[in-house]
Design a binder for these strands. Sequence first.
DNA 1: TAATCGATCTTTTTT
DNA 2: AGATCGATTA
Length: 834
Amino acid sequence: MTETLPSYLSALNPEQREAVLHEEKSLLILAGAGSGKTRVITTKIAYLIRERGIDPRSILAVTFTNKAAREMAERAAAIESRAAYAMLRTFHSFGAWFLRRYARLAGLNPSFTIYDDDDMASLLSSICGEKSKADIKLLSHQISRAKDYFISPDDPEIKIINYKKEFQTIYKRYEERLAEIGNADFGDLIKKPVEILRNNPDVAAEIRGRFRVVMIDEYQDTNIAQFTLLKELCGADAYVCVVGDDDQSIYRFRGAEVRNILEFPERFPHTDIIRLERNYRSTAPILRVASSVVDNNKGRLGKTLTAERGGGKTPVLAFLPNQDEEAHFAASLIERYFADARSDTKRAADKQSPVKKYSDWAILYRTNAQSLGFETELLRRHIPYRVVGSLKFYEREEIKDALALLSFLANPRDEVSFRRVVNKPARGLGDVAVGRVITEAAGGDLFAAARRTAPILSAKARSGLQSFTEAVDAGRAVLANFALWDDPTDGAALADAAMDLFEDADDGASPQTEKAGRKSRKKASPAPDAAANMPTTNAPAVSGNKKTKDAAQPSLRSGEGLSVCVVTLVQSAGLAAYHLTHDEIAGNQRIANLQELANAASLYPATGAGLIEFLEHIDLDRSMEEQNATDGEGVDSVTLITLHNTKGLEFKRVIITGVEQGVFPRDDKKDDDLEEERRLFYVGATRAMDELYFTCCAARRMFGQTALMEPSLFLSEIDKSALRVIGQPPYGFSARPAAGAFQHSTSQRGVASRKRGRQSGDEDSAGDSSTGTFWKMGDRVFSDDNGYGFVTEIRPHATGPIVVVLFDTGKEMSFLSRHQSSKITKISGEDHDG
DNA sequence: TAATCGATCTTTTTT
DNA sequence: AGATCGATTA
């Protein structure tokens, strides 16, 4: 039978193939890490279209990240080009698509914009201004959670989130204000579609008629609202296929419910379950380490991943004195990788060894803040890197300002954006004047209200308000088809017209032409100042030589499409001048950032719909992947990334950093939260294909102070023989110890030194009686010629031990201890005391 | 009304 | 250490 199958199917293993060919009612695929689940999904999409004659437009596949969605679309289309017509989106992007389409039914204008967490907080503080910032943050978090659980203000279940009556009141008020403004928050993108489906049987019928196949990836991370949406989306005869891994559920904190995957068979009757337990990604030693940690979790379905790959190196655990050494160590590993490559090529130039790339490497950390040290070090060594998922660009003041202007242009009822920019730069508008405009608007069009209010204000406020409205007017003037939004109260015709504009590739236009059009526009648009893109975080190769040249006269250039609008708005509002004069040091950089935003906008048409599309894209996908990638995959670079963000990715070599108690796991974690951190460990470790490293620091600067750290609990859960330990383990450390404390000796003069436990790895050390030096793997050394380095190998030799040192420069040298040890000085490690 | 200085807290993780 | 917030001052 196999030979009758097309090659894309026969290439699958039996379980994968079974999953692809399955076609009864519902399917739950329990897919371990690296078991080829993306391959299964994409192949299944292709198979359904090609072999089963399913209309691609009736397929909906949902993922969690934009990156995953893009990858899925690419891979499916590579097998079967018609897959481009299928709807492959993130949950939120699908929600936004749906909500625009049926906006009216939720009382929204189809041109609504999306409020992020910050906007949410701003709105909340305008509702209850007396609250502290922390309280506001908590409230917005709880409202988000409520929406994740599909709980409305009046739902009695609201007590689960917050039992106080006050919370209910505020939540309710928040919903009213948001409705007045006419925007949606993240939760609404899921919750409102459900409500529309429930309240409008005709819409439900239409949607259910359309989507015959629904697939969901990373199902273990869905929340209740998303589950509810799935239920509403699927008609009685829809085919539902979900893929997930309970061991990789890491988003409980934002409402993910592992129950969804555990109870899926009950919720969807006649479910078949297929397990994918063959891991194709990692070598066995890596899987062993990953499993030994997650095995300590209680609440799991339990599965056994088996490595399909033989051999493999033992993962390395490096004990290091502090953060700086950690960054040194990571950078050195990467440099050595390439140093090896150079010597390799001489010896075995004809051997077909794969090309070594920076992108083979990823440095993982628990919190975004940890990236800084690595950035500094990589920058210093001219190792190109990119920081994944760093929101920094959109968190910049000038970018937020510009986006607020655009948002206000898109929705003149947007009070949050209005407040942000109406008096920025200072136009002499104080609380009084702004308050008057808002009162006048009475929840309606603030732009119109501003014009009406201006005449009755003081001369100063009047001219300020006028200059603001003129700026907005100027921005509006460069947009075509803007009339649509002039009167948001104009009902059906408006929505219908808007819907045409927002209509996606699915109805009518071929997705290929659409995408091609988009692409070519992107290509055509110059990608100047790619360096300016992520100023603090970009690769060193592109640091700003070009910028300094025109630093004398920085000005915004408008390019194609919507960039005209961005530039016009920012210029005429005086934002560019404001930031330039306000911040003499960073001013030019700010202009460059604004320029970058304008460049991104040039991919969109200069129309009202283009504006909405642009804003939606920014709200739903802040990864900067697209903008960053100048051509194809972009510059080859090391990946710096949070553990959470690595989900679904893989790298040849992975360094998991900061594996210390208090950092990973955070020390306030226990029980369920601790189990989630364990899963996070599992996710991180299983990203590695060939080599895996852990780093654990004895001391770490936190809050401006140096704190002594203990090794992570997780390290102690790993079988000692599964790791190769280098550096100085703290006294008493051994993997899998009798439960007990790790203890540190106190640090001395900034460099914490640790007494080595007697029991650990004596085969990796050697004393040299002639010099009185005791060498050990991982010892930190210094040489006048080569700077700092680590002892990476100790070999016995007739005339005494040979010590191999990897210097931070990447250079590796061997020293015959007896004769040459004077060239290298041990600066930390085993003290000479016993 | 805006800018500046000190006090205070910070770090999860993300669509 | 760095951001952020509030109070004080110009």
